[in-house]
Design a protein around this nucleic acid. Sequence first.
DNA 1: CAAGAGCAGTTAAACGTTTAACCGCACGGC
DNA 2: GCCGTGCGGTTAAACGTTTAACTGCTCTTG
Lengths: 333, 333
Amino acid sequence: MATLTDVAKAAGVSTATVSNVLNGTKAVTPHVRQRVLDATASLGYRPNLQARSLRTGQSRTLGLVVPDLSNPYFPALVQAIETTARGAGFALMVMDTGNDMRHELEALALMASYRVEGVIWVPVGDHHDLDWPYPIVTVDRPVPGCDAVVADHREGGALVAKHAIALGHRRVGLLCGPHSLPSAALRREGFLEAGTGRFEIAWEHEVPFSSDLPNQLRARLAEPDCSLVVCANDAVAVGVLRATREVGIKVPDDLSLIGFDDVPWADFVDPALTTVRQPLAALGESAVAMLSARINLPGRAPHHEVLPVELVVRRSAVPAPAGLASVSRRRPA
Amino acid sequence: MATLTDVAKAAGVSTATVSNVLNGTKAVTPHVRQRVLDATASLGYRPNLQARSLRTGQSRTLGLVVPDLSNPYFPALVQAIETTARGAGFALMVMDTGNDMRHELEALALMASYRVEGVIWVPVGDHHDLDWPYPIVTVDRPVPGCDAVVADHREGGALVAKHAIALGHRRVGLLCGPHSLPSAALRREGFLEAGTGRFEIAWEHEVPFSSDLPNQLRARLAEPDCSLVVCANDAVAVGVLRATREVGIKVPDDLSLIGFDDVPWADFVDPALTTVRQPLAALGESAVAMLSARINLPGRAPHHEVLPVELVVRRSAVPAPAGLASVSRRRPA
DNA sequence: CAAGAGCAGTTAAACGTTTAACCGCACGGC
DNA sequence: GCCGTGCGGTTAAACGTTTAACTGCTCTTG
């Protein structure tokens, strides 16, 4: 590849001059400026960003560390991060940790070696005492000492509760995600808080964020004993959908269902899922905004940003049958 | 961050020696070796890969250029590419072109500036006369002069046809993707080739790869005039699923449906989609394998690799009703 | 008209590595 | 007792940039 020196030689000037016209650093005579431009064009010169980085200490590269790209939650997030990062003049280096904490630390170390200027991180394990030579913004899961941007899971839970109340449900089943995950815990809290006194929790189970439901749950779903099941996740909702279909319970006629996340296919299942949309694109944009802010002026105290979520009403949750019908129907005398 | 020179100073040796112990380039006395190791550890030294790259000309970085990360086709592909690339000692720089040819060229140019050693590219437009200073492997869409790895779309089409025959369908509707896309065209060819004489094409439409069907198609689907609809895509299949539901046609009882791709949620819709699985992980692995092969020995003629696809039978396609029932039912005397 | 300022360009150092060339020394073989 | 060789280490150049310091010039200005 052509180098700055090549261009300088071709244009008959010094490398400094070439650098100056290419970066607009200093004024140069129109005539020589044109000669330089011609030379760059004809040689197909492209600056070597690694060399520049070495000299300036700015790699113009951001890192992104995620636990599992094939999780439908991520693509939209990654896309938003990549496009806004590039818009801000940063290229994005991506690493998938496969949900493994060890890989996670290796990834962060590699990022350091590649001299990224900052990292956006969706952590999987519990972390503390991190010290890396670059600023970090975590997404969805705060880590002590790092900036963080999260969706308003608590409010999301509350939105679900309010919707349940508006639909007149009095007995609801609750399938919440792993308590160890802040997001799941907050959704649950928000939901319970907004719902106390307005409806009764018929039962509650902790399930993984997956559409493969634990077996004991299938039995439970055969006799739901409630008119609405609130799910940790859209994936979980699909699991419930399947399980109920197997035992002949119809959603939403016999049983209402609410998910969370609004994954891309939430609108494709039958019935389309009523769910809470996470502002994936906004999360991504905020993350890179916070990161570049911190790159530009380090030393400020870590900051948390929480973004609003949105209830999206589709067809899986309908008004509760009058007189707690679903409860009595399932409890023949 | 600590530098090689810092380490050398701390260990009381020259930078060359430090480099040699860290890379195992030359033998060094166990004693001094240990001193160096201690120094690196205590300083938390991490090699500056940019500087190394500048010196050696090897950035240990690969580029990935995709048209649209939020397309469900990609996450699995990206994941496979990233993990196998990293396994081979390469970090991955990702850029999303937003389905825009101009962005595509900008992305390739940026990759050049970042001095990636090679690029894996899922092109969107028609390209030729490319010349970039790095090797390129295209995925899913061959570009003249580049290595390519593709799924066996033709065979996929044939698999669908054979399955249709096995199920006894005699009249089928065909919704094929944009003819301009080789993948869509090949699926169609394979399908038609394997099916001629065994079933009749009741009608055929060219549709975009989307679940929003053109309106004239909805009318068509109200009177399918066939027992099976073969879809360009799982997304298209979902579109058909919706449209038929609206007019009261039941899948698969009244009408069978076959998709393509086996996107992650193909199993979540009702009925679960019978479809053709693309070997996404294998495509990714092959792509980086081909790329590192070419990096190691350039100058070989471009090579194409086509990977086998797989029919996955679920519930959306069932045996045809006897006596072309679906046809006669829809045509009352 | 002399001196100072500003302009347009060059020189050279520096960023953090790798690596070829070199150097001193001990050792083995004749 | 010498010479060649291999070992363990150092020196210094080079990779492609940016940029501070410098050099002539021309212009302005008092």
